[in-house]
Simulated scan of single mutants.
Amino acid sequence: MTKQAYVGFASDINAVIVVFRGTQENSIQNWIEDLLWKQLDLDYPGMPEAMVHRGFYSAYHNTTIRDGIVSGIRKTRKLHGDVPIMVTGHSMGAAMASFCALDLVVNYGLDDVKLMTFGQPRVGNAAFASYFKRYLPHAIRVTNANDIVPHLPPYFSFFPQKTYHHFPREVWVHDVGLGSLVYTVEQICDDSGEDPACSRSVSGNSIQDHITYLGVSMHAEAWSSCRIVMDYAELRYKMDLHGNVVLSKQQQQQQPGLSDQRRRHSAQ
């Protein structure tokens, strides 16, 4: 349907599937760094005190994607009846999928809408999460091990009404055990959206855990001339009590290039 989203009918589960693609591999790290500084900056229409991330909201609502998705759903349901609607996405696509699912329920009055996202960042505050839970009580957010993105934008427990807050329900996929006795569990978290025993119990500093979910590579592979310039596996950051974020990265020892070799040869 578009380069960012796809609407189709899955006959094996008899449902309309709306899929939002993930963040492009070559922009993941820059996008993550940007998320560290994002503030709540938009009031969600019709939901008092609910605030959201303007960029994620606009990426869905203020583009042609929205009209295309609604049109695709209506055409599919016209052909196959009032089948369930499953909305899904990864990374930034997960954030857009969340706004899409809520939009379909609240603004278009569609029923039987389900949502499952992977590696989703926070998209709104606690008030927004409460509304979201009311309209989509069975939404699932799958998080993976130490994936950094579900930790962003940062959550500040001492400002519960002013900070970003996940909506429920999280399912945290991670390994447990010791040595050779390691196995993967899918931990169902509480209905707070911010269960301290789930992904919030770990540091959340891995990009590798963000791009691979359930053994499947999730990132989009569209070409771009812009490349990642930081360590691909881990982004190091820390946060003080005032909410200030400090980033750090290790510089790799570069091999001397041809021009360096020529300069040394000339000096000799």
Rank of each mutant, 00 (worst) to 15 (best):
R141E: 03
F99P: 01
P160S: 02
F20W: 09
K78E: 15
L110D: 06
V52Y: 09
Y164H: 05
Q251E: 09
T184F: 01
I13E: 03
M230I: 13
V216G: 01
L235D: 04
D41I: 05
S217D: 11
W172Y: 04
L235H: 07
M239E: 06
G46C: 01
E25K: 15
S91N: 08
F9A: 04
G193I: 07
K133H: 12
H61S: 06
K238M: 09
T163Q: 00
V52D: 01
K249I: 11
L152S: 03
Q250Y: 15
N125G: 03
F56T: 05
M96I: 13
S266H: 15
G109H: 06
F118K: 08
G8Q: 08
L40Y: 01
I188L: 10
P168S: 02
A126H: 02
G119A: 04
V18Y: 07
A101L: 04
H53A: 02
L79N: 07
F56P: 03
G46D: 05
S224E: 06
G22L: 05
P160L: 00
Q268Y: 14
K238P: 00
K162S: 03
S157N: 02
Y44N: 00
I228G: 11
I73F: 04
H174R: 07
V229S: 11
R122N: 00
G124D: 02
I28C: 05
I228Y: 14
A94L: 06
G46E: 03
A59K: 11
V7W: 12
S58V: 10
G179T: 01
S199M: 11
D195I: 09
